[in-house]
Design a protein around this nucleic acid. Structure first.
Length: 271
DNA sequence: ATGGGCACCTGGCTGC
DNA sequence: TGCAGCCAGGTGCCCA
């Protein structure tokens, strides 16, 4: 479910409910996530005031006391703000109960998500320290992509989804950004010009910015923190549109597989 | 270092 | 209606 726009939509949704609140209790019903949730997390978090709700890549960072909870939604995770007494449903694995009677409820059917606690700088955490630039930050630019891609034979779509290259560009938005940029997703990253990388950066930013403004993409079951769907799905140019006519030319959209993931593109206008 | 493939897990949809 | 098979938005890790 969540790519960067969905995670940012979630962050913006939960932030006003969490800032300044104290954690009354943490209930871990099922800590078997991608990595086991440590028993100590509930004890560490209890009583602390939440001072910031930040995002780095697709990780959400809840700053509390001297530490930080590092949360990832995986493929199917979601967060909602609910009255603490509301009965949990299947896959509602963790509640962070606040001092105002509400709770932050983490649901994740596939359990690919994760929750860590650290007292150190979270940006130096093993999971975060090697990540590339944020796609909406200035460090992410054509020159960066061009320099990093020299001699690389990997397909541009896989290069773009590599978190060392840039974070937050997942399977949907990689296809979308390459379509907007008119670049064939199979093209070797090392054989794309600096000028085309400038265009690609603009298209990545445009795609993500529009998706965030629309509240993310709902394909199957994405819901924001209030339980509402995102509306970017209606604006997807190629993703999930196999066989449909291309919006830019007379061609039609194809589905191929790259690195075991579906890629959608138009052969005639992406070169 | 690079690139490719797999695993983790559950649910929804399709087609027989 | 039942069920097998396929697919899914992430990403760390293992292997050649």
């Amino acid at each position: 479910m969540p790519e960067l726009p969905e995670v940012e939509t979630t962050r913006r949704g939960i932030e006003p409910h969490l800032l300044g609140r104290r954690v009354a209790e943490v209930v871990v019903r099922d800590g078997r996530l991608r990595w086991p949730v440590p028993d100590s997390l509930a004890l560490e978090l209890r009583g602390l005031r939440i001072d910031a709700v930040q995002r780095r890549a697709k990780y959400l960072l809840l700053r509390a006391g001297d530490g930080t909870a590092i949360l990832h939604l995986g493929m199917s995770g979601s967060l909602r703000i609910l009255p603490a007494e509301q009965d949990p449903t299947q896959h509602d694995h963790i509640d962070i109960i606040l001092d105002d009677g509400f709770c932050l409820r983490f649901r994740d059917p596939r359990r690919f998500g994760s929750l860590h606690w650290t007292l150190a700088n979270p940006l130096e955490h093993k999971l975060l320290r090697a990540l590339g630039p944020e796609p909406l930050a200035d460090e992410f630019c054509g020159a960066w992509l061009h320099a990093r891609s020299r001699r690389r034979r990997v397909a541009i779509k896989n290069f773009l989804m590599d978190s060392h290259t840039v974070v937050g560009v997942g399977n949907i938005y990689a296809s979308e950004a390459l379509c907007r940029a008119g670049i064939d997703p199979r093209r070797a990253a090392g054989r794309i010009s600096a000028r085309r990388y400038d265009e690609l950066v603009a298209c990545v930013r445009e795609t993500l910015t529009l998706a965030i403004a629309a509240g993310g993409t709902t394909l199957r079951d994405f819901k924001d923190s209030e339980g509402k769907p995102g509306y970017f799905g209606q604006e997807l140019l190629v993703y999930g549109r196999e066989g449909q006519p291309c919006a830019h030319c007379e061609g039609h959209i194809e589905r191929i597989v790259q690195g075991a993931r579906a890629t959608y593109f138009c052969r005639s206008c992406q070169r």
